[in-house]
Design a protein around this nucleic acid. Structure first.
Lengths: 223, 223
DNA sequence: ATAAAAAAATGAGCGCACTCATTTTTTATG
DNA sequence: CATAAAAAATGAGTGCGCTCATTTTTTTAT
């Protein structure tokens, strides 16, 4: 309207700022509606309206409704992970530490199990390669943290050094992730999740050396 | 038309037979089209037409398009599992045996990776509780087989008896299942799948006793 | 055989996620 | 400020999975 040839803010330019602001509104509206009505029951039209944009505009900011769900949650995940690792009891046995970490993640999902289910489904099977790469990044963070705990357990001689922390971390995460799916699918309840997670983690951490020092994996003949 | 008051076949009655025959045609058509065009690109209308029924009739036989995919695959799964366990080398180390079993399952999925991905997604997250229970049944079969292998390994003293076969089987399956997802998502290739599966299974089987006989998990003080 | 009841099949219609030709807004240029 | 070019937003349109009131077929009872 009036003369403002360069009203642009300090750094990012007016256009960019509008886009960021719009993006923020979209994710806020999506998160609010997903939580209030559930993922399936929320329409993209509703989200668009709540964000004050047209239906089609939504898809300039997210590639699909599922993508939107990932965007909403991924924003929060780093904080959740940090929190889960923050208060790990330094002196506790490894399995207790793992229960603390995975339990912390589960506590977050427990806030809205149905929605967490939809989120984890996208974590595991989102169509978008690019987005899955970002997911992998988050998973890597968790894994690095777990591997660190394993390394510390080795240093304090709770477990032996023959265990590769990276591989072991992947194993423990696999155990967590499958049970998480079972729980979010309501195939088991939260108590079952905790109980079975502990059992399986104990099994995985302990494993089994050969029963005698010399038998080893070489004993493969007939009984 | 003419008088056949009780033309019904030996046992199941005419109606029931028609339904079974129609069901067969539907699953055959669905399987054929899914494999030829992919899951997403196949429409339920196409399947209905190929099966010689109306669009709406399809949903009297399957609750959703995803359900149809599960029905198609579940039919085959028992055979695939039997085959995977059939030729397990009886004398090989446990990890090799596990690789044989999980590799056998992976070989089957390798026939059509894209479709297998859609199938496994439904295995993990299908909306239908009833159907997921059936899936659980199949998983239980795999687990029992793996647990049997573990038990045999214990009996031939390859591994120790302190390992609970059921729990360990769940751990190994978790490891397999997560890597399967990674592979079908094309985050890793088949070679990577095999290589990492082996590493992680070895890690899980071996685990880690405490490094010295007396240290145990009790050593939790300061370094 | 006929009528009544039950089961199964039909397909037009609905709501939804997503696309894309067009319009509006913003930036760059003389 | 005027104009051209680029970017962003719009919303009517499309195709799809799925539903459900209606029709057709099959079974049961008389």
């Amino acid at each position: 309207m009036s003369s403002q040839p360069d009203l642009a803010p300090s750094e990012p330019g007016r256009r960019e700022r509008n886009k960021q602001e719009k993006r923020r509104r979209i994710l806020a509206a999506a998160g609010r509606l997903f939580r209030r009505k559930g993922f399936a029951a929320t329409t993209t039209q509703e989200i668009a309206t709540a964000a004050g944009i047209a239906a089609g505009t939504l898809f300039l900011y997210a590639r699909s409704k599922e993508d939107l769900l990932l965007l909403v949650f991924m924003d929060e995940m780093q904080g959740v992970i940090d929190k889960a690792f923050a208060a790990v009891p330094a002196a506790a046995p490894l399995v207790d530490q793992l229960m603390h970490v995975f339990g912390g993640l589960a506590d977050y999902h427990a806030e809205d199990v149905r929605l967490a289910r939809a989120f984890i489904r996208e974590i595991a099977f989102n169509e978008d390669r690019e987005r899955r790469r970002e997911v992998m990044g988050v998973r890597t963070v968790i894994n690095a943290g777990v591997a660190r705990l394993i390394g510390e357990a080795q240093r304090r001689r709770e477990i032996g050094r023959e265990l590769d922390p990276g591989d072991a971390a992947q194993v423990y995460f696999s155990v967590y992730f499958l049970l998480l799916q079972n729980w979010l699918n309501d195939d088991i309840d939260r108590d079952g999740f905790d109980a079975q997670l502990r059992r399986r983690l104990e099994t995985a951490v302990a494993g089994s050396r050969a029963p005698t020092r010399r038998a080893g994996a070489r004993l493969i003949g007939r009984p």
